[in-house]
């Protein structure tokens, strides 16, 4: 096994960790952190970043996700021009934002818009955990609230994929208030009869799990995704309790009755499409 080879080499020669890492050609091969198997990146991408060996769901970027869900060339992005500011004058905040913009080519931690899913128009918000750990500040809250409002106005179903460490510290209480803003938008959408599906991906924690992520008509999660309000470390430190291994995983939430289903990425589009079809207003009225 490749893993054994690497292990043996480390033991008996002076090859450093750094060099070992370099044995996996950058941009060509990828190691699964769950089973340690090495795969071609192309193979992994083709498999929607699900490990072909052990089924581990690797993070998807927002655009990879959008491509995996919507019919080719049918999506448009909304509100990309809404830009982060620094309301608390937090030191280095905008520099960090700029860095993540360059790294991810995204303007913020969420991409919102509209696309066709099996020929049906759907409004979406897809978060990207690479951008400031997917944390929610004013822009994330604003873009999601606008997407929900627009879904209401255009009578579209709304699908959200969450990936977030929670509220963004650098915007303080304004981040907290985005939980209210998005939740009120959902209430309005729901009252108008709108269908909302939330899919929690790794990780969905803190203020995001305690607002829109949990407010879908249907709430799903990807396998093994970490989902919870308080962080595991904080709970362990405060309560000195031993936490089960599966604590705050998608499967744990399913067991305790907090989500509707755990859904494999390969089955996602089909499931969402089916559900949206079953709520199709035209069918009902005709």
């Amino acid at each position: 096994m490749l893993k054994d080879i690497f292990g043996r080499r480390k033991k008996h020669s002076s090859v450093s960790n750094e060099q070992t890492k370099n044995d996996i050609p950058e941009g060509l091969m990828k190691k699964c952190p769950s089973c340690n198997k090495i795969f071609y990146e192309k193979e992994m991408a083709k498999n929607m970043e699900v490990c072909p060996k052990c089924g581990f769901h690797h993070a998807l970027s927002a655009w990879e996700r959008i491509h995996s869900l919507f019919d080719a060339d049918t999506f448009e992005e909304w509100d990309a021009h809404v830009q982060t500011s620094n309301p608390l004058d937090f030191p280095d905040y905008l520099e960090k934002i700029e860095k993540d913009r360059e790294k991810t080519k995204l303007s913020e931690a969420v991409v919102t818009g509209k696309g066709m899913m099996d020929n049906r128009p759907v409004a979406f918000s897809v978060m990207d955990s690479r951008f400031r750990m997917g944390s929610m500040g004013s822009v994330v809250g604003e873009k999601i609230a606008r997407a929900i409002e627009r879904a209401k106005d255009e009578d579209l179903p709304f699908v959200i994929f969450t990936a977030s460490g929670g509220a963004r510290m650098q915007e303080g209480v304004l981040s907290l208030m985005q939980m209210s803003k998005t939740s009120i938008a959902i209430k309005r959408f729901s009252k108008a009869g709108g269908l909302m599906i939330s899919v929690m991906t790794h990780p969905t924690t803190g203020g995001v799990s305690a607002s829109f992520a949990s407010l879908g008509d249907y709430n799903f999660a990807e396998p093994e995704a970490l989902i919870g309000f308080a962080g595991r470390r904080i709970i362990e430190q405060t309560t000195r309790e031993k936490l089960p291994d599966d604590f705050q995983t998608a499967e744990f939430l399913l067991k305790h009755g907090h989500i509707d289903r755990v859904v494999h990425r390969h089955d996602m589009k089909k499931l969402l499409s089916k559900i949206i079809n079953m709520h199709g207003k035209s069918e009902v009225s005709s």
Binding site: S190, A210, S214, G228, T238, T239
Partner: peptide, 19 residues
Amino acid sequence: PGKEAEERGQSSAIAQNLM
């Protein structure tokens, strides 16, 4: 911040109130 609070759905309870 506790195990039981998470088991009993802290996130969804807060979210429900907001909505």
